[in-house]
Design a protein around this nucleic acid. Structure first.
Length: 433
RNA sequence: GCGGAAUUGGUGAAGUGGUUAACACGCCGGAUUGUGGCUCCGGUAUGCAUGGGUUCGAUCCCCAUAUUUCGCCCCA
């Protein structure tokens, strides 16, 4: 048997309906926030990611999906969405658009070459937004609010926003040195991983799972104290805009983001999944990336979210399933009736009814079972004798009432009955919040 | 890149070094010869991930590979 590639998954059925719902809400919200859709290649030249993400990071060194095409060009399956969007922004000279800033959203698959584990596949689907061409703190706040509202509308109640500021690149460097200097004398008392992290990735020590309660860390310098005047002001303004928008947030100095291109505002959206606090989305400001990739100095802020994790969170929180049901199921037994079934199914579908019919020539009993399985609201029973009179039997599958209806009046009849049916549904007890 | 655990029909799974691999659900058919969801009866696997090895004999023991899953590093 041919199996799917390692670390990939087939998304269909119930899970597929959740995925589709996320995409629908994202594109709906993108319209009102006025973010334009962008679709960039799924692979790009490797250099884009190497330069954008930072040559020395583990991500680039061992976790990218690199390959050579037949022309010997080095290519990489995109590990994230921002680099491609920024490349397109520069290549298409969007910085010259009459409408500024440029606001874009995307949704698509990303790839990482690593050992799969819980919540981390090699192929994953992400959506994201980018706001390019402004350094105004209200842009940071807009991105955060946009993301927050998407989650809310999807029905997630426990999402928390955590924000922090790394400052500009010089504050970032000073902070790093300050932290190393502070931790160095005590490093023997930390776990093995943290000891290697000290020089490689000191900021990560702050959210180490083992040492996060280490007494030395309580007094450790935090990024916010190393900010220069300007960075500090930027962060304060972001916070005050968030207050204005009534977005509940929490300042968390341990939010550090791994990629080189972040500066100033960084944030994460956290949800509780299976008892663990997991990030379902994250982002931040990246004022340096456009120029690093060869464009003009451009201030940007963006956000991305893994749909797989969002769906997990929705299921965890019991967000109501998008129900898969149909309006009509057409029954038939003989060939003449089958022709009517085929013909009528087209007519009814064009009239807007979700219609199914028997395909396998099964017994009446099996057709009833099938109709129930599909949660059909009405059953249409085609019987040669009735058809001779141009009539069909329509059975309400909830009340079991059955009526003979003339073919010419069928759609009119269904319109009326469906409406009654829907009204009843609305007044079902226990449905309201 | 490193480590642990797993892999038996459509599904959930039991099980054993020795001719026919439990049980349940599902599915299909029949009783009810074209109105069901209950009941009863019957049917339902190129058979135990793949490739090697040990053995008279392997689904079972050993090795390798693949995939799944859980961790580590790292996190987009």
């Amino acid at each position: 048997m041919i199996t799917k590639p390692k670390g990939c998954s087939d998304i269909y059925g119930k899970e597929g309906r959740y995925f589709r719902k996320v995409d629908q809400i994202v594109s709906l919200m993108a319209e009102v926030y006025h973010y334009d859709y962008i679709r960039t290649p799924i692979f790009e030249s490797s250099e884009l990611f190497h330069r954008g993400i930072g040559e020395s990071t583990d991500v680039v060194k061992k976790e990218m999906y690199d390959f050579e095409d037949k022309g010997g060009r080095k290519m990489t399956l995109r590990p994230e969405g921002t680099a491609g969007v920024v490349r397109s922004y520069i290549e298409n000279k969007m910085y010259g658009n009459p409408v500024q800033p440029v606001k874009l959203y995307y949704s698509g698959t990303m790839y990482r070459y690593e050992r799969p584990q819980s919540g981390r596949d090699r192929e994953l689907t992400q959506f994201g937004f980018e706001l390019l061409g402004t350094n105004d703190p209200c842009a940071d706040a807009e991105i955060i609010s946009f993301a927050y509202q998407v989650y809310k509308i999807l029905g997630l109640k426990s999402v928390k926003v955590k924000i922090n500021s790394l400052g500009d690149s010089s504050s970032r460097l000073t902070y790093r040195e300050k932290l190393i200097h502070y931790l160095k004398p005590h490093i023997d008392t930390f776990c093995k991983d943290c000891q290697t992290r000290l020089l490689e990735n000191p900021l990560r020590i702050l959210d180490c799972k083992i040492d996060c309660n280490h007494p030395i860390l309580k007094e450790a310098p935090i990024t916010l104290d190393s900010l220069n005047q300007e960075s500090k002001k930027h962060f304060e303004e972001v916070c005050s805009y968030l207050d204005l928008l009534k977005i509940p947030y929490e300042v968390d100095p341990t939010i550090v983001r791994g990629l080189d291109y972040y500066n100033h505002t960084v944030f994460e959206f956290v949800c509780e999944i299976e008892g663990k606090n997991l990030a379902i989305g994250a982002g931040g400001r990246y004022n340096g990336l456009v120029s690093t990739l060869g464009g003009p100095q451009t201030s940007c802020v963006g956000f991305a979210s893994g749909i797989g994790r969002v769906v997990l969170a929705m299921q965890e929180e019991g967000v109501e399933e998008v129900e898969d049901s149909i309006d009509l199921f057409l029954f038939y037994v003989n060939e003449e009736e089958k022709k009517y079934a085929v013909f009528l199914s087209q007519e009814l579908r064009l009239a807007g009814y979700k219609t199914e019919m028997e395909y396998l020539g099964r017994s009446m009993k099996a057709q009833f079972r099938q109709a129930d399985r599909l949660k059909a609201k009405f059953l249409i029973l085609l019987n040669s004798k009735d058809l001779d009179q141009n009539e069909v039997k329509v059975k309400n599958n909830q009340t079991k009432e059955e009526e003979l209806v003339h073919l010419d009046a069928l759609i009119y009849y269904l319109d009326e009955k469906m409406e009654e049916n829907n009204e009843e549904e609305i007044f079902l007890p226990g449905k309201e919040e």
